[in-house]
Amino acid sequence: MPSLHDLSLNSSLFITNSVKTMEYPNLPYTPIVVHAGGLHCRPAKPLPQDLQQWISEAGTPGFILFSLGTVVKPSTMPEKYKKVLVDVFGSLEQRVLWKWDEITMDGLPSNVRLSKWLPQQDILAHPELRLFITHGGLFSTQEASYHGVSILGIPVSIDQHHNMRMVQQEGWGRVLHWRDLSFDSLRNLILQTMDDPRYQLYNVDVWALLAAVIIVTSGLSFWLSYRILLFLVRCCFWSKKKKDD
């Protein structure tokens, strides 16, 4: 196989897992680059009956999804981190759906459910989901954006730190680093992110602002045009009257 350097210089087509309109800053591209970010995102399918029943029993507070993706093995995390997660999740009124690579866990709170595999996109689209706690992987952040879910990222490695910085800059999520993980820091960020109204699905607030600006600008332009026309008409009448006199 050629080196990546040689491939980059001789490729006829480059497909990138990125959404061009969401890139910041905007970057120049040659015609051979095709953006296919979010290609895997899809509308939700019905959840398994037992999972749907568990979510329904959560009631008004809803539930939280916590997943560190498929690369990280959750059970290998240091015990001090695991204890913080267990204690915080147990203190919440929401139920917590936790992707975990083992069947059981010592001291698991009654409001927490473990699962080795979860239909993530179907869960993200559920109306009772209040928050997605994630490692910040590219697929996970794209799926959360697609389904309109606020996220709290705890990045582990690779591109996850960059992904979560972008999410935080865009205002629809927050970041917590493992070195800063404590009962208070995690619980406070969970509550703050769930209650933050800034992120709106499909950026409705942004579009509303743009519409208001356009309407105001159009109205101002119309008013200025009317005043200029009125001024010209008056000048014409004034000139005619002066000539008649």
Rank of each mutant, 00 (worst) to 15 (best):
E79N: 12
L7Y: 08
V71C: 11
P28H: 01
L4R: 09
F132C: 14
F237D: 09
L7Q: 11
R198E: 11
T76K: 05
F222V: 13
K99V: 11
K73A: 13
F231G: 11
F63E: 07
H161Q: 09
S67Y: 04
H40K: 05
D245F: 13
H35D: 14
H5F: 06
L7M: 15
D245T: 13
C236S: 12
W207D: 07
Q169K: 12
H147E: 03
T134D: 00
Y199R: 10
Q121L: 13
L114N: 00
P74S: 07
L27M: 06
P155G: 06
P119H: 01
P119S: 04
V33P: 01
L138Y: 07
Q169H: 11
S157P: 00
M164Y: 01
K80C: 07
R165L: 15
A144Y: 02
I133N: 03
V96P: 14
I55A: 09
Q200R: 12
H40W: 03
G153F: 00
P2Y: 04
Q200T: 15
E170P: 06
H161R: 05
M1P: 13
P31I: 03
S225R: 11
S11E: 11
I190V: 14
I151V: 07
K20M: 09
L209P: 01
K82V: 15
D6N: 10
S218R: 07
G219A: 10
C41M: 07
D101K: 03
H40R: 07
A211E: 14
S150P: 11
Y24A: 12
V149I: 10
F63K: 06
D101Y: 00
D101R: 01
Q200C: 10
R130A: 13
W238K: 14
V216A: 15
V167C: 04
L108A: 09
D50K: 07
C236L: 14
P25S: 05
S218Y: 02
H35A: 11
D87I: 02
G37D: 12
P119Y: 00
N188D: 14
D50V: 12
L129Q: 07
V72R: 02
Q168C: 06
E23F: 00
